[in-house]
Amino acid sequence: MTYKLILNGKTLKGETTTEAVDAATAEKVFKQYANDNGSDGEWTYDDATKTFTVTE
């Protein structure tokens, strides 16, 4: 399945997607991506749209 990440950071904004077997796997990928790019904030997940959002 395709999962989407929306970044609403102070310095990093945008979207990216990943293919993953489940939401937990996608979350690990996205959290590593956000960490690698210095983005940290409040995470939410919408199962209906398969979208993670991180807001700083």
Rank of each mutant, 00 (worst) to 15 (best):
32 Q>L: 09
5 L>P: 02
40 D>I: 14
10 K>Q: 10
10 K>L: 14
24 A>T: 08
44 T>I: 08
8 N>W: 13
45 Y>G: 00
9 G>E: 05
25 T>W: 07
16 T>N: 05
8 N>E: 08
34 A>M: 13
37 N>L: 15
32 Q>C: 06
48 A>N: 10
29 V>Q: 07
30 F>C: 01
20 A>E: 03
44 T>V: 09
33 Y>I: 07
51 T>C: 03
48 A>K: 10
23 A>M: 11
1 M>I: 14
54 V>Y: 11
5 L>Y: 03
18 T>H: 06
15 E>C: 15
34 A>N: 03
43 W>V: 02
49 T>I: 05
44 T>C: 09
31 K>V: 06
21 V>E: 10
3 Y>K: 02
14 G>R: 14
19 E>M: 14
28 K>D: 05
26 A>T: 00
30 F>T: 00
21 V>K: 12
46 D>C: 09
29 V>P: 01
47 D>K: 07
40 D>Y: 15
51 T>K: 02
42 E>F: 13
47 D>R: 07
12 L>I: 13
7 L>I: 14
18 T>F: 11
31 K>Y: 05
16 T>I: 15
16 T>F: 15
28 K>F: 09
15 E>H: 10
37 N>I: 14
1 M>D: 12
31 K>D: 01
1 M>E: 12
1 M>H: 14
50 K>W: 05
7 L>P: 00
54 V>S: 02
7 L>N: 01
49 T>M: 05
42 E>W: 11
49 T>D: 03
8 N>Y: 13
38 G>I: 13
9 G>W: 08
35 N>R: 15
49 T>S: 09
14 G>T: 14
33 Y>D: 01
43 W>C: 01
28 K>I: 09
17 T>P: 02
29 V>S: 05
27 E>L: 15
40 D>E: 12
4 K>R: 13
32 Q>G: 06
35 N>C: 12
41 G>T: 05
53 T>K: 04
56 E>H: 08
17 T>G: 03
54 V>F: 12
23 A>R: 13
29 V>G: 03
40 D>M: 13
35 N>H: 14
30 F>V: 00
8 N>K: 12
5 L>K: 01
46 D>I: 03
14 G>Y: 15
20 A>Q: 06
33 Y>N: 01
19 E>F: 15
2 T>E: 07
14 G>C: 15
19 E>G: 04
47 D>T: 07
46 D>E: 06
32 Q>K: 13
33 Y>T: 03
37 N>P: 04
17 T>C: 11
24 A>E: 11
55 T>H: 08
3 Y>W: 05
49 T>N: 06
34 A>E: 02
31 K>A: 05
43 W>D: 01
1 M>W: 13
29 V>Y: 15
26 A>D: 00
49 T>L: 06
20 A>W: 02
4 K>Q: 05
56 E>D: 11
23 A>T: 07
14 G>S: 13
37 N>F: 14
43 W>L: 04
56 E>Y: 14
3 Y>M: 02
1 M>G: 10
48 A>Q: 10
53 T>P: 00
3 Y>N: 02
40 D>W: 15
9 G>R: 06
28 K>L: 12
32 Q>T: 07
13 K>N: 09
46 D>K: 03
6 I>P: 01
28 K>E: 08
21 V>M: 12
14 G>W: 15
2 T>P: 04
14 G>H: 13
14 G>Q: 13
55 T>G: 05
25 T>R: 05
2 T>D: 04
54 V>K: 02
49 T>P: 01
52 F>H: 00
28 K>R: 13
15 E>M: 12
55 T>A: 06
30 F>P: 00
50 K>I: 02
46 D>M: 04
55 T>P: 01
37 N>K: 13
18 T>W: 06
3 Y>F: 13
23 A>C: 13
4 K>L: 07
2 T>M: 12
22 D>L: 03
8 N>Q: 11
42 E>V: 14
12 L>E: 08
7 L>T: 04
56 E>A: 10
34 A>D: 01
27 E>H: 10
8 N>G: 05
39 S>I: 15
1 M>P: 07
42 E>Y: 12
22 D>G: 03
23 A>P: 08
50 K>L: 10
7 L>Q: 03
53 T>H: 06
5 L>M: 04
56 E>Q: 12
44 T>E: 09
40 D>L: 12
19 E>S: 10
38 G>E: 06
33 Y>M: 05
9 G>Y: 10
12 L>G: 12
36 D>M: 12
34 A>F: 08
22 D>H: 03
22 D>M: 02
36 D>H: 08
54 V>N: 02
7 L>R: 02
29 V>I: 14
50 K>H: 11
52 F>S: 00
40 D>G: 10
24 A>Y: 09
34 A>H: 03
8 N>V: 14
30 F>K: 00
13 K>Q: 11
8 N>P: 05
15 E>G: 08
38 G>S: 06
12 L>V: 12
28 K>W: 08
10 K>V: 13
18 T>P: 01
41 G>R: 04
47 D>A: 14
36 D>Y: 09
49 T>R: 06
35 N>I: 15
11 T>R: 09
21 V>L: 12
30 F>I: 00
50 K>P: 00
52 F>R: 00
39 S>Q: 14
51 T>W: 01
40 D>H: 13
37 N>V: 14
53 T>S: 05
21 V>S: 11
47 D>M: 07
2 T>F: 08
43 W>M: 05
16 T>G: 04
2 T>W: 12
50 K>E: 01
31 K>G: 02
7 L>F: 13
47 D>E: 13
50 K>A: 05
36 D>Q: 12
55 T>W: 11
54 V>H: 03
39 S>G: 10
17 T>N: 05
13 K>R: 11
51 T>Y: 02
9 G>H: 06
49 T>V: 04
3 Y>G: 02
42 E>S: 09
34 A>G: 02
54 V>P: 00
34 A>R: 03
12 L>P: 06
30 F>D: 00
10 K>D: 07
50 K>R: 14
44 T>G: 06
49 T>W: 03
45 Y>Q: 00
48 A>I: 11
25 T>Y: 07
